[in-house]
């Protein structure tokens, strides 16, 4: 199939950037990123700069890839990162707009690559538990209710790709921050540092120039790991509790 691609090109963080249009030839068996690989090979053979984009595992589990395709983070498929999107979705003659995550908290480095280190700083502020290292503890020493374990696992499925921020009309990072807080706050191991975790993670999130949550739900619909906004309600509740305790 022949496709027309409009791709955001930006040479450096300070460059103004703009869309460039490319003709691409693709087979329905390719993944979306393989389609871009072929475009890049062609660009390189012509001595042009290839389109810069992030990817690593290409099996939907690492959270490295991500771009907005026709207005949707990771493209049109639900529960799917862009590396798992396949070209059978498209047909001959389709026009595809490809943009980077757009948020001031994620400054563009080059073309479709954004700097997501703000997420690292949010996690560093409280997305951990303090334990004495050494040999692995006995797995069943601390009982965890099944329901809590399931919920914690659901929240821990977050791969930190940033699609929630990209999809949010407010460019808010609440789903990410909530998921990272929830998977620890739901477990016994997360309790001792719970209040400090919540306060520090929220304060760091605020300092990273993200917007505010207005409960649109776009983040949940965009999340390739189907993290539910109930983790946001949980963080809201934990924030109030932490403030009351901190007084």
């Amino acid at each position: 199939m022949r496709l027309k691609l409009h791709v955001w090109r930006q040479a450096s963080p300070s460059d103004r950037g703009g869309f460039a249009t490319y003709e691409a030839e693709a087979s329905e068996h390719m993944s979306f990123l393989e389609m871009l690989d072929v475009v890049n090979e062609e660009l390189e053979s012509k001595g042009q700069e290839p389109i810069a984009f992030d990817s690593d595992c290409r099996e939907g589990i690492c959270g490295t890839c991500g771009m907005v395709i026709n207005g949707r983070p990771h493209g049109p498929w639900k529960r799917t990162t862009v590396c798992q999107l396949h070209m059978r979705e498209y047909s001959d003659g389709d026009e595809i707009w490809i943009e980077p995550w757009r948020a001031d908290g994620f400054p563009i480095q080059k073309d479709l690559i954004v700097d997501r280190s703000a997420f690292d700083r949010i996690v560093a502020a409280g997305g951990y538990i303090s334990v004495r290292t050494g040999s692995a503890p006995e797995a069943n020493a601390i009982p965890v209710a099944r329901e809590k374990a399931e919920k914690a696992m659901d929240a821990a499925a977050c791969i930190g790709c940033g699609a929630c921020v990209a999809a949010c009309p407010n460019a808010s990072a609440m789903l990410f921050t909530s998921a990272k807080a929830a998977h620890l706050n739901l477990l016994p191991q997360g309790q001792p540092e719970r209040h400090g975790r919540v306060l520090n993670m929220i304060l760091t999130m605020e300092a990273e120039q993200f917007g505010t949550c207005t409960n649109h739900g776009a983040c949940e619909n965009a999340c390739p790991k189907e993290i539910k906004i109930e983790v946001i309600a949980m963080l809201n509740r934990d924030y109030l509790r932490a403030l009351l305790k901190a007084g």
Binding site: G71, A103, D104, G105, N170, S172, Q209, F210, T212, A218
Partner: peptide, 25 residues
């Protein structure tokens, strides 16, 4: 909060597909 959100996306998307739960929001 609106001002904070407006400032959080200085550069808008060219294409936008609304993924919100419902129109009211």
């Amino acid at each position: 909060t609106s001002r904070q959100s407006w400032a959080a996306r200085g550069h808008k998307y060219r294409k936008r597909d609304n993924l919100v739960f419902h129109y009211a929001s």
